[in-house]
């Protein structure tokens, strides 16, 4: 019961951070909320007994990704509020950068009203379509939720013979951390492909950036 409560609170914080990241005007607020979101998810992984994923998420998701975003913002548009946005924003607008950060900790009720004003604001700006699209996706996924097994149930279909094999076989081989065992032994080619993806991404990024310098 404690675990369920903890998970619910953490997921509430994570979803709130995601909403802030989605609705913030300034890019810096979005990135700060995104960093908080990633770190919150890392704690969720820890509660779900996935320490390896939590470490990777905290280092790579919250750390490297946010740093990459910050470097690119500094390299391109900068952190100041662009001229055009300043002209567009009305004085009555609720979503000013400084306010946003202080309101992250607010209770759920004000989060709800903020969301409502944001939604109506988005509709006013003629962006009804994106709200509809997102609602359709969320609604469609929510329809499938009752068909899923209860969170934490021991008879979850994921626990099949494959998982049993990995657990017993790595026990006989004397490998303590099953995640590492699967990563480098049983699914070694998968990990090799992952490294190939990283190398390709580095080559592509360097090629794209160098082309800019030549011109």
């Amino acid at each position: 019961m404690i675990t369920e409560l903890l998970v619910a609170i953490l997921l509430g914080l994570v979803v709130a951070a995601a909403v802030v990241a989605a609705l913030a005007r300034g890019i810096l607020t979005t990135l700060a909320a995104f960093g908080a979101y990633s770190l919150g998810l890392a704690v969720v992984w820890l509660v779900f007994r996935a320490p390896d994923v939590a470490l990777t998420e905290a280092a790579v998701g919250a750390g490297v990704t946010t740093a990459l975003f910050l470097v690119v913002v500094a390299r391109t548009i900068g952190f100041g509020v662009p001229q055009q946005q300043r002209q567009n924003s009305t004085p009555s607008s609720e979503f000013v950068d400084g306010d946003e950060a202080t309101r992250v900790g607010d209770a759920g009720a004000s989060e709800g009203t903020r969301l409502r004003t944001a939604v109506t604001g988005a509709v006013r700006q003629g962006r009804r379509r994106s709200v509809v699209v997102a609602s359709l996706v969320t609604g469609g996924l929510l329809l499938t939720v009752p068909a899923l097994p209860v969170v934490g149930a021991a008879d979850t279909p994921g626990f099949g013979p494959v998982t049993e094999y990995y657990l017993t076989d790595s026990a006989t081989r004397g490998i303590d951390n099953v995640v590492t065992a699967i990563l480098v032994v049983y699914r070694g080619f998968d990990t090799f492909g992952e490294i190939a993806v990283v190398v390709t991404a580095v080559v592509a990024a360097v090629a794209v950036l160098n082309q800019g310098e030549e011109r």
Binding site: T56, G61, G158, Y166, I182
Partner: peptide, 20 residues
């Protein structure tokens, strides 16, 4: 279940590559 953890470890790294 350790198997989804492995899949997501791979997916996180691939996600960072895509972002980069």
């Amino acid at each position: 279940n350790p198997l989804p953890h492995v899949l997501i470890l791979t997916a996180i790294v691939v996600g960072v590559s895509v972002t980069a």
